[in-house]
């Protein structure tokens, strides 16, 4: 028996919108502490890790650990049928080959249930090691999205360099080059507008902008984004989901031959 009631149903809608274009289908792993998902894109260049903790749900019941394979495109189609103010409940029964999404309007005058077929997914689970990163940049998520979009109109890859001067995003393409430098800025009215650069050692890495732009679909989930880099590891682009968990995107770097 599985029953999860999320009053802020729009969060789940936003989560799906942020990952459905990167990953076609994935296993959702439910346990008593919450649910998680880990999946690579089809080319194994990027990995998404999602965590939603049980504390964030108004009601959370998961009698035994269970894994449900879902097509994210189909799940997104169903969740799009929920209103932004709707309460969403996820229900499942042991051994069933379907999952039910129930949508309740805030005034309880409209109740809908959508039953979705589950699928068997043979996915490999990767161990993500704890790491000390050379540099961690926390910045407004809208600013990061703007930079990735702007640079993608010039080039295909971005070089992200962190020095004590700041963080530099650079690209080059047929029409020319672009460099955007952000300096640490903590003298802002609202903490979410700050750019905070923690640097243990300078780092410079190259990434495909196509993936970075895909990650920025998570922008509605959080006002801030955290970018963690070490030369020998995939970059981590993390959007925290208030008091519930996170969506983390890992992107393998482009490396010199």
């Amino acid at each position: 028996m599985l029953e999860l009631r999320l009053v802020q149903g729009s969060l789940l809608k936003k989560v799906l919108e942020s990952i459905k274009d990167l990953v076609n289908d994935a296993n959702f792993d439910f346990s008593s502490s919450g649910f998680s998902l880990q999946s690579m894109d089809s080319s194994h260049v990027a990995l998404v890790a999602l965590l939603l903790k049980s504390e964030g749900f108004e009601h959370y019941r998961c009698d035994r650990n269970t894994s449900m394979g879902m097509n994210l495109g189909n799940m997104s189609k169903m969740l799009k049928c929920a209103g932004n103010d709707d309460i969403i409940t996820i229900k499942g029964d042991d051994g069933s080959d379907t999952v039910t999404f129930m949508f309740e309007s805030p005034t309880q005058d409209k109740i809908a249930d959508f039953e979705m077929k589950l699928m068997d997914i043979d996915s490999e689970h990767l161990g993500i090691p704890e790491a000390e990163y050379h540099a961690i940049v926390k910045m407004p998520s809208a600013e990061f999205a703007r930079i990735c979009k702007d640079l993608a109109s010039i080039g295909d890859t971005v070089v992200i360099s962190v020095t004590k001067e700041g963080v530099k995003f650079s690209t080059r393409g047929d029409i020319g080059t672009a460099n955007i430098v952000l300096r640490q800025n903590t003298t802002v009215d609202k903490p979410e507008d700050a750019t905070v650069i923690e640097m243990n050692e300078p780092v410079s890495m190259t990434f495909a902008l196509r993936y970075m732009n895909s990650f920025t679909k998570a922008t509605p989930l959080s006002n801030t984004v955290t970018i963690s880099m070490s030369p020998d590891l995939p970059v981590v682009v993390e959007y925290k989901i208030a008091e519930m968990g996170y969506v983390r995107f890992y992107l393998a770097p482009k490396m010199e031959e």
Binding site: S43, V45, L126, T206, P234, K254, M255
Partner: peptide, 14 residues
């Protein structure tokens, strides 16, 4: 020339 690496180069299966 830089080449796109993959996640599995860095993270192992568990």
């Amino acid at each position: 020339v830089s080449k796109q690496s993959t996640i599995t180069k860095f993270f192992n299966k568990v």
